[in-house]
């Protein structure tokens, strides 16, 4: 199973590295959104600092939509998904492999975005462990939900527009919980960030389990 997971993740990451979409499109997109939020809030440091967590995770959701769309497109182009089915890889391994590849890309963008909010918004970090743990757990939850939904809409003709309509509301719990945990990590609000992180982890586990179980039938039927 681990061999297949790595095989799928390696394949997706190799394709992304070669197409340079994450580097040349997703990352500039994310940084542009962060800067535009700054313009929209009149570059008011006080407001920006207070809103940093929400703006950060909202941008991450936009990034995730693009990453999931790319991941889905890899398998729908030229019937490539058929190769996965015929090769006999367990669908649960495909799910985990694809989710891991998305997570690596989104996490990479997040790390650079953290630098962005520190510079552009003047944010300061009070708890690095909480900040790092939030990034990792939220990213895994996003990747699990996105991969599952990507498979669900793979057979839909207008999947590029349907995916964000479905994915963004589905990820609302991640936006809320990750923003609160970040508020604590950045010292913006006096909340229990670790408790919010627990909620985030619960959401991630549920979606990961759902994905592991449902990905096979979805792969077959779409």
């Amino acid at each position: 199973m681990y061999t297949d997971i790595w095989l799928v993740a390696d394949k997706d990451l190799r394709i992304e590295w070669r197409s340079r979409v994450a580097l040349s499109q997703i990352l500039p997109f994310a940084l542009t959104v962060l800067v535009l939020f700054g313009f929209a809030l009149n570059a008011n440091r006080e407001v920006l600092t207070a809103a940093t967590s929400g703006l950060f995770w909202l941008t991450v959701l936009f990034v995730a939509v693009v990453a999931v769309q790319r991941s889905t497109a890899i398998e729908t182009a030229d019937g490539a998904r058929r190769a996965l089915l015929l090769a006999g890889i367990e669908p649960s391994s495909v799910f985990v492999g694809k989710a891991l590849a998305i997570a690596v890309q989104v996490l990479g963008v997040e790390i650079l975005m953290v630098g962005g909010v520190l510079v552009f918004y003047g944010a300061t970090v009070e708890s690095f462990p909480l900040l790092l743990a939030t990034c990792v757990v939220a990213t895994l939850a996003i990747a699990a939900s996105g991969t599952l939904l990507g498979a669900l809409v793979a057979g839909v003709r207008a999947r590029e527009t349907v995916l964000p309509i479905l994915l963004l509301p589905l990820l609302a719990p991640v936006l809320i919980a990750a923003s609160r945990a970040f508020d604590d990590a950045l010292g913006v609000l006096a909340v229990d960030g670790w408790a919010w992180l627990g909620l985030l982890a619960g959401f991630g586990v549920v979606n990961a389990l759902l994905g592991t179980l449902a990905y096979g039938p979805l792969l077959e039927e779409t």
């Binding site: 394949k11 394709i15 890899i74 182009a77 030229d78 058929r82 015929l86």
Partner: peptide
Amino acid sequence: GLLGHDTALYDDL
């Protein structure tokens, strides 16, 4: 082994 109308290959590999 199935050869379909599409080639089921990844363009970027």
